[in-house]
């Protein structure tokens, strides 16, 4: 590990104050739990001159009812979300995903906002300074070649947050505070398909809260991930599914993926299975659709072909499980 750069730390008590510090500071970064950012700083990947510690911002913590939906503050810790009875009852996948992030200690101080703004990950990027230097760095940081796809000019580092796909299937929106004021956008709008720069937010924008709508509350949903170590790890592939059954027919089906693209991915084409019973043929078709849209690359120690197979199998299993459970 590297020594930490000589940054200055601010500890604002409101989101507006945090945004102001960001605008006025030299190379600032927002810091909440630090489970991702501090590691990257210590590896020399990030070299901030200013840290803006968000843990004292009260308006960014806690879970509250919002017209039958929920508001979850951006600095709410993951354990609180995983163990919240109201989140478990209304948005099961969100609670399950929050409970699957890293290990129990990380969930005690790692935050929702940190998980949604997690940097993309790659075998050639999340390494120490000397490791990356000896490999001539990489396209994402300080180098010119992507070691995953050397002939291309794109970065394929994978977005590896667990909670994003679960929020996507429940149609979450995020409230962002920035130099230009506050805005509320669908969660998927803050991501783009670029491992180098996967966040489509403006510089200095801060995730104040996540809003889950009443319209998707209580619809059965679930999340599962595949990982190297069962106890503590980033996902090799993660799948969230929301499924409502009406008699023998599927009346609502939404699937989202994580860790297999540079952004959390909404699976397209699931509408084709709505209004019909779910048989083996349909399940196989869902599995194959997921495998086609997942684009895992050699960004983990596990081979891409395996992650592609796994992500399809997980999706098929979850869809089947939610359908059977409502039979």
């Amino acid at each position: 590990m590297e020594y930490l750069p000589n940054f200055k730390t601010h500890r604002p008590s409101t989101a507006a104050e945090a945004v102001k510090f960001f605008a006025e500071s030299d190379e600032p970064r927002y810091l909440a739990g630090g489970t991702d950012l501090v590691v990257n700083v210590r590896r020399g990947i990030e070299t901030p001159q200013t840290m803006i510690d968000l843990t004292g911002v009260e308006e960014m913590t806690g879970i509250s009812d919002a017209g039958g939906g929920l508001r979850i503050g951006g600095a709410t810790v993951l354990r609180e979300i995983a163990e919240s009875p109201i989140v478990r009852e209304r948005y099961a996948a969100v609670a399950e995903a929050a409970g699957e992030v890293a290990g129990p200690t990380h969930r005690d101080y790692g935050t929702l906002g940190g998980n949604l703004f997690l940097d993309t990950r790659c075998l050639y990027y999340n390494q120490s300074e000397w490791w990356r230097a000896s490999n001539d760095y990489c396209l994402k940081k300080a180098g010119e070649v992507c070691h995953v796809a050397p002939s291309g000019k794109r970065c394929f580092a994978a977005f590896s947050g667990d909670v994003a796909p679960a929020l996507l299937v429940h149609e979450a929106e995020v409230e962002l505070a920035g130099p230009g004021g506050t805005r509320r956008v669908p969660l998927q709008d803050i991501y783009r398909n670029d491992g180098l720069d996967h966040l489509a937010t403006q510089p200095g924008e801060l995730l104040v809260a996540v809003y889950l709508p009443a319209s998707t509350a209580g619809i059965p949903s679930t999340y599962v991930k595949s990982r190297v170590r069962g106890s503590i790890d980033f996902p090799l592939a993660g799948v969230a599914v929301r499924l409502q059954r009406d008699g023998a027919d599927v009346s609502d089906l939404v699937v989202a993926l994580t860790a297999v693209n540079p952004y959390p991915h909404f699976v397209k084409g699931m509408d084709a299975h709505v209004g019909k019973p779910l048989d083996d043929e349909a399940l196989d078709a869902i599995r194959d659709t997921v495998r086609t849209q997942a684009k895992p690359m050699q960004t983990t120690t596990v081979a891409p072909w395996y992650r592609r197979r796994v992500v399809g199998a997980l999706a098929r299993r979850l869809v089947s499980k939610l359908y059977e459970a409502q039979g």
Partner: peptide, 25 residues
């Protein structure tokens, strides 16, 4: 780097990795 847990302490009643926490926070 927050992977092994040897630095675990309790801050305000909750477990926390001291190696990923800034003292001033």
């Amino acid at each position: 780097g927050g992977e092994c847990g040897a630095c675990t302490v309790i801050v305000d009643g909750k477990a926390r990795h001291a190696c990923l926490t800034l003292a001033v926070s």
